[in-house]
Amino acid sequence: MTVLRLKEIEKTYDSEFTLAPLELVIEEGEFFTLIGPSGCGKTTLLKVIAGLVTPDKGTIHHKGQDITEVVAERRHFAMMFQQPHLFPHMTVEQNVSFGLRMNKVPKTERTRRAKEALRQVGLESFAARYPSELSGGQQQRVSLARALVVEPELLLLDEPFSALDPQLKDEMQHLVKQLQKQLGITTVCVTHDQQEAFLLADRMAVMKEGKILQVGAPHTLYSHPDTRDVASFLGHTNVLAAQDAAALIPLTSLVRDNQLVIIPSEAIRLEETGTLGVIKHIQLQKDTALVTVALSKFEVVAKVWASRASNYKLGDQVFLNVEPNAIHLIPN
């Protein structure tokens, strides 16, 4: 079932398009991610959904009802921000039950539900503390509990993990994903972090300059990007003209000259026979290495196990082979 439908949404700041007219559909229970470089309008779009920003044009429907004119405080959504935004003069429990208090839920029920939400995020013993006594990660958990406790129609996440250090980030991502599935909350998340999007999203939308470029399941987008922009944003470095790619892989006559061939770096293998190239650069990562190989007219990047990369050095001659099923064609 469709939970949210955005039609022809448009927003302009200072005569510059922040959001070009765009369409978006969010389905019940899914984890939907908006991803794109900074300044692409993803946060503005999230705020439009939240009701914090009023669009210039277009409509928003929530479960069939037009909510375009409904203010944020009447939408019954919940949101986590980059900063926890806990109110420093309230205890953890008061912070968590804030939304219930605003909706005039009786005090005893408020307390009960706040305790339950705190239990879900593993902070039940912190109810009486003040935010200043908590660590950054704990504060963000309280912020999550505050969002969950109102049983929102829609959970909005505005890069809530980006200010956390790596280990905490992992923990929080898993916690959010687990609770989201368990409670079946429809979620829209903004991020610029691809890893995060692939980890969390059921579907995602890639945005650039206020437009949605493509929507789909993360791995579908990765293996079948529609445009060069989507491909390069998702990390494809080997986007080759058809005539260049022919040097690496036999292409059928169906491939026209004006098409581009995308070869995922992990689909290129370094072997004993194949197309000859010279190693120009090796970038070691924890478990894999990116090896840049120069061919006659162009360069490609191959992803190999880091342990194998140590066998090579700059200037070595190598032979390349490409996994034919992994390649993807897009129009130029």
Partner: peptide, 27 residues
């Protein structure tokens, strides 16, 4: 403005925001 956005998301009207957030904060 983050506080105001947060409060609004959870249902606070402007007056609620003043009485439950701003006034206690300056107390």
């Amino acid at each position: 403005s983050g506080w105001y956005d947060t409060a609004r998301i959870y249902g606070a009207r402007p007056w609620n925001y003043i009485s439950t957030i701003l006034l206690p904060a300056i107390r």
